[in-house]
Amino acid sequence: MQWTLNYEETWLHRLNPAFKLIFFLVLFLLLLFIHNPNMITNVTVVPLLLLLFSTGHQKKVLLILILPFLLLFFSSASSMMFFGQGSTTWWKWGLIHITEESFYRGLHIGFRALNFALLGLLFALTTRPVYLFYSLIQQLKVPPRFAYSFMAAVRILPVMVEEFQQLRAALLIRGVKKKKGIGRITQTVTLYAVPLLSQSIRRAHRIAVAMEAKRFNNKERTYYYKPSFSKFDLIFLLYIAIGFGLAFWMSGAFPYFDITDVRQK
């Protein structure tokens, strides 16, 4: 969350936000076509290096953000490792059936999830949402109605947090007791979700009316921020291309695992 953390701007902040988004989506699709566990292990290093050394955030903050990824790695990998199909059995106990194939497939999925997590965090830590929306309008021709709605909605969130705290205090002072089981869900919906949502719907409606009263429309407009392209975009492109190239070459030259395709034949 950009608006709460202290950080230094680095070259990654100066990338064109829309370019960054599109490029990351392309990387995402590319990662889906990697089926070689050696390759994905090497590829993980590429975003990790950027995250550790080029985001301009404090190491402490980065560590706190990266630690949950370990849990993610295991929760993504575990079901495939324990219950995947395969022919070379390593271990069998009740329903658990670990085979060589399923183990590596699980590992592969874990690394894949890790890659998406690292890339996602890299994007979130180095992109100011406001710049992103301005860039989406100007470079990708997203209708301003959508982009500005997004920016307005982001501004409403802190108000909602405040309202939530107010609600909680009010319920506490009236001695409302927490119910158990299914009752807890209905209680949460009626005591918290309904007032919070209905208030924010009213607020959003008022803002929309106000914006239209000020003649907000989709026609010609001028912009305060004008994101453009720079040499950093090219450097970033080269870094990723070289990183992926090296990862690919290394996976052929110095493989860690014998398996080169984790899919079930």
Binding site: F28, L65, F69, A113, L119, G120
Partner: peptide, 11 residues
């Protein structure tokens, strides 16, 4: 995604 989901881009 923008608040930094651990599932990253996939979401």
């Amino acid at each position: 995604f923008l608040v930094g989901s651990e599932y990253g881009l996939s979401v």
